[in-house]
Simulated assay, not measured.
Amino acid sequence: MQHHIRPEGSPPANGYSHAVSFAGPMLMISGQVPLDAEGRLVGYDDAAEQTRQVFRNIEVALEAVGSTMGDVVKLTVFLTNMSDLAAFREVRDEFVDTQRPPASSLVQVSGLVHPAFRVEIEAIAAIRSIP
């Protein structure tokens, strides 16, 4: 896996790589939301806690195939309020290697499947082997 954080001629990157190249099998992780293993909303009005739970859910999906956050090559982030961006970035940096961050897209949306959800994240990971 090779991270191309800022190829020459590209704009500055803030916590993401402009491109990540890899070969081999990949794992697509559906959009994860701030629900715990029992289906309870975590962090009702707290963007940081919701984001932390979403990343925990991504880690669970990765662990199911023997992978880690270090194997994530792309994140797609949906926020309902751009004022949550700083909280998202702070929590994201707890989970990703900031020296080798995944490629990333971030989109503001008018709403998610549940009105209390503030964040949803999809991920793509390069996996070592298919279990």
Results as ranks from 00 to 15, higher is better:
residue 1 M to A: 00
residue 1 M to V: 06
residue 2 Q to H: 04
residue 3 H to K: 00
residue 3 H to A: 04
residue 3 H to G: 01
residue 4 H to M: 11
residue 5 I to P: 05
residue 6 R to T: 14
residue 6 R to Q: 15
residue 7 P to K: 05
residue 7 P to S: 08
residue 8 E to C: 11
residue 8 E to A: 15
residue 9 G to R: 15
residue 9 G to Q: 13
residue 10 S to P: 00
residue 12 P to M: 14
residue 13 A to N: 04
residue 13 A to P: 01
residue 14 N to K: 03
residue 15 G to M: 07
residue 15 G to N: 06
residue 21 S to D: 04
residue 22 F to D: 00
residue 25 P to L: 12
residue 25 P to V: 11
residue 25 P to G: 13
residue 26 M to N: 08
residue 26 M to K: 13
residue 27 L to K: 05
residue 29 I to E: 04
residue 29 I to W: 07
residue 31 G to I: 12
residue 34 P to F: 08
residue 34 P to H: 03
residue 35 L to E: 09
residue 35 L to N: 08
residue 36 D to E: 00
residue 38 E to L: 10
residue 38 E to K: 09
residue 38 E to N: 08
residue 39 G to Q: 07
residue 41 L to G: 02
residue 42 V to C: 07
residue 44 Y to W: 05
residue 44 Y to M: 06
residue 45 D to P: 02
residue 46 D to R: 01
residue 47 A to F: 05
residue 47 A to N: 03
residue 47 A to D: 08
residue 48 A to S: 11
residue 48 A to M: 09
residue 49 E to D: 08
residue 51 T to N: 04
residue 55 F to P: 02
residue 57 N to W: 03
residue 58 I to L: 12
residue 58 I to F: 03
residue 62 L to C: 05
residue 62 L to F: 09
residue 63 E to R: 15
residue 64 A to E: 08
residue 65 V to P: 03
residue 66 G to D: 11
residue 66 G to P: 05
residue 66 G to N: 07
residue 68 T to H: 02
residue 68 T to W: 07
residue 69 M to G: 06
residue 69 M to I: 06
residue 69 M to F: 14
residue 70 G to Y: 03
residue 70 G to A: 08
residue 73 V to Q: 01
residue 73 V to F: 05
residue 75 L to G: 04
residue 76 T to S: 11
residue 77 V to N: 00
residue 77 V to I: 11
residue 78 F to R: 15
residue 79 L to S: 02
residue 81 N to V: 02
residue 81 N to S: 05
residue 81 N to M: 00
residue 83 S to I: 13
residue 84 D to C: 09
residue 85 L to S: 04
residue 86 A to T: 12
residue 86 A to N: 12
residue 87 A to T: 12
residue 88 F to K: 09
residue 89 R to M: 15
residue 89 R to Y: 13
residue 90 E to A: 14
residue 92 R to V: 00
residue 93 D to I: 11
residue 94 E to H: 04
residue 95 F to P: 14
residue 97 D to G: 06
residue 97 D to M: 07
residue 99 Q to V: 10
residue 102 P to G: 09
residue 102 P to A: 11
residue 102 P to S: 14
residue 107 V to D: 09
residue 108 Q to N: 10
residue 110 S to Q: 06
residue 112 L to Q: 07
residue 112 L to R: 09
residue 113 V to D: 12
residue 114 H to V: 15
residue 114 H to E: 15
residue 115 P to G: 05
residue 115 P to H: 12
residue 117 F to R: 03
residue 117 F to I: 06
residue 118 R to D: 09
residue 118 R to A: 12
residue 119 V to D: 05
residue 120 E to Y: 04
residue 121 I to Y: 01
residue 121 I to F: 01
residue 123 A to R: 02
residue 123 A to V: 04
residue 127 I to F: 06
residue 129 S to E: 13
residue 129 S to Q: 11
residue 130 I to D: 07
